[in-house]
Design a protein around this nucleic acid. Structure first.
Length: 227
DNA sequence: GGTAAGATCAGC
DNA sequence: CTGATCTTACCA
């Protein structure tokens, strides 16, 4: 695997991109994340995930609620894998899924409470060429970041970013608010790909956005999912 | 020690 | 629909 992450861009990238887009956003602060993940998740819709020279607008998220949530990795307590989730809010929890893909979460809530928001889909904004080069299998640009594994591959997020602080942003990765408001009425529904707590409506998305994940789109159109 | 299941994706 | 292929939980 190539290491495209050797040069973290840092906050300076905000200015650089601002020159291109005319918009300079603000990094989200610790307090934004230090609440219940179900409160944070829908407010993340419309925010930008920035990693290196790439960024994308968050269009689909899921909340996981630690030791009270059977679908959460933290349900059975702390393990080496999920330790980051038990730490401070505003850090990135990255895990390896199905032995194949990486998935990224933002830790929320109080320290010691393992709640987090899974980033499921982005609309690509900056660094699209770089994303394409990392995701040769994506035939269309809308396939670059429309899934939790895909967006990590596109933005070069791996286990190396597990435990990265999105607030201090010293790893060149952070969440930015460029003024785009979350949808007043987001899509809401059950989470994707889990087998327990299937009825909890803890997935949110931007209605009608073409970058919502394939699994999410299926669920939204009422097609049969695993039951 | 073995085995099954999993917050996924791509290719058939 | 299936294979890929790593981590964890759980059972013997």
């Amino acid at each position: 695997m190539s290491d495209a992450f050797s040069k973290p861009a840092g906050p300076r990238a905000t200015v650089a991109r601002g020159k291109e887009t005319g918009v300079v956003g603000r990094r989200l602060e610790r307090g934004f994340f230090g609440r219940d993940s179900r409160e944070v998740a829908p407010e993340l819709l419309g925010k930008l995930l920035v990693s290196g020279r790439c960024s994308g607008r968050i269009v689909e998220v899921e909340a996981y609620c630690g030791e009270e949530d059977p679908a959460s990795h933290a349900y059975r307590g702390m393990t080496p894998r999920n330790a980051t989730m038990f730490g401070r809010a505003g850090f990135l929890y990255v895990y390896f899924s199905y032995g194949v893909h990486w998935c990224a979460n933002i830790v929320c809530g109080q320290e010691g409470v393992a709640s987090a928001v899974l980033l499921r889909s982005l609309a690509p904004v900056a660094g699209v060429e770089e994303m394409r080069s990392r995701r040769a299998t994506a035939r269309r640009d809308r396939d670059l970041c429309n899934g939790p594994g895909k967006l990590c591959q596109a933005l070069a997020i791996t286990g190396r970013q597990d435990g990265a602080d999105l607030v201090e942003a010293r790893n060149g990765i952070w969440i930015e608010d460029d003024g785009e408001a979350p949808p007043a009425t987001p899509g809401v529904g059950p989470r994707i790909g889990i087998s327990s707590a299937r009825s909890e409506p803890w997935r949110w998305w931007v209605p009608g956005d073409q970058h919502v994940s394939a699994g999410g789109a299926r669920a939204a159109t009422g097609a049969r999912g695993r039951q």
